[in-house]
Design a protein around this nucleic acid. Structure first.
Lengths: 212, 212
DNA sequence: GAGTGTGAAGCAGTTCACAGCG
DNA sequence: CGCTGTGAACTGCTTCACACTC
């Protein structure tokens, strides 16, 4: 592995998150070193897959032994950008938004929700945890003042696009979208869609196939 | 297309959900007929992709014209199993669980949450919407009585596996997992994982790459 | 003419298999 | 000897290109 200018497949990056999760479990149970096939069994992949994924990051496995849990954890954290504290704005303080706001794993990983925006006048000015909910009209200045890196969209489909346009114009370069709509963004903005309905419907597809 | 015994790629099935969403928008705005490149532009794919996907379902486009919005909607609904009413059990009535319970798009699509299970004694016996929360000990009989087709897991990672083992033993064949853990299931049980952390971390990966 | 349906080509991610290091 | 790291083969999704139909 030349160690630079490589493009890591998206699928591998997503698996890094999973490996990290397992490694933290291993670390907690005092395991110091782990081989690719153990990681694979834990995560439902294959040993070759694990090694290929990790080889994108360099080569720090010990042959005949495996990977140092501590070292691999550190590398994955760093690659995934979990060394930095990311400043996150949450758009929408409805049920989904609130649940995300309080979701502990986000906080544990250094994602700090510093801004919450909602257009309901009853909510504006009230606190959500340690943050005061602000109105839509304050969007731009909130993003600027809080130096927002990343936005989580949890508003109804109808208003998502126009809000996100403003977010992008304000310079944010990463969007996690929970709204059930396809957002149009410039190419240089990273976008991830989480569609609960797509997942659920792909399950009902398998159920429907199963008993014809 | 021979119309039978074909395996539709998973990626296509997931796009079906998206196409359906767009078609419903089109239907609402009175559009009767839609060409592949219009669907593609709406969803950020290519026209060839749309046609290939739809060709798995048979061939009912009109050459020179496009697809009937009404017909295509009906076909996609049927393929995705949205004609049936699915009976869903929700495990975990915490913040995530509650938000999912009330999530309107699920209800609109015929996913009916008929059972809610939580192990918090304070919650057991209290209502969540139109359903009374039941204790963990009632899991098996609840699944049986309600003839559950599908289970949504929204409990902490630590208890997810053991609960799901019981769910599978009770005959449920589809699981939507929101718990941040890798579940081990028999091959004949359909599983979809939704990991909010994986998505968020893949965004922080792109952010970290961007400004080295 | 406009737009579908589809083999064939292209490409990306996965798996294999083995040389090489600890 | 065990397990990594990796080119090479493979698999499966995507894109292309064009014959065909309305």
């Amino acid at each position: 592995m030349n160690g630079f200018t490589n493009t890591i497949p998206d699928a591998s990056v997503r698996r890094f998150s999973l490996y990290l999760r397992y490694l933290e479990d291993f670390e907690r149970s005092g395991v110091r070193s782990v081989a690719s096939d153990r990681l694979a069994r834990r995560g439902g992949t294959t040993a070759a897959q694990v090694r290929k994924d990790l080889s994108y990051l360099g080569s720090f496995g010990k042959r005949g032994l495996g990977y140092s849990v501590e070292e691999l954890t550190r590398v994955l954290r760093s690659v995934l950008g979990l060394d930095s504290e990311w400043r996150v704005a949450l758009l929408g303080a409805g049920r989904i938004g609130t649940a995300l706001f309080r979701y502990q794993p986000f906080r544990d990983r250094g994602f700090h929700i510093t801004t919450v925006i909602d257009n309901d006048p009853c909510k504006v000015g009230t606190p959500l945890g340690d943050v005061v909910i602000r109105g839509e009209d304050e969007l731009e200045c909130a993003l600027r003042d809080d130096r927002t890196d990343l936005v989580i969209v949890a508003v109804p489909a109808g208003v998502a696009q126009s809000l996100v346009d403003r977010v992008v114009a304000a310079g944010v370069r990463a969007v996690l979208n929970y709204a059930p709509t396809q957002l149009r963004l410039p190419d240089d903005v990273a976008l991830r869609n989480v569609s609960m309905l797509v997942e659920l419907q792909s399950l009902s597809y398998s159920l429907a196939r199963r008993r014809p």
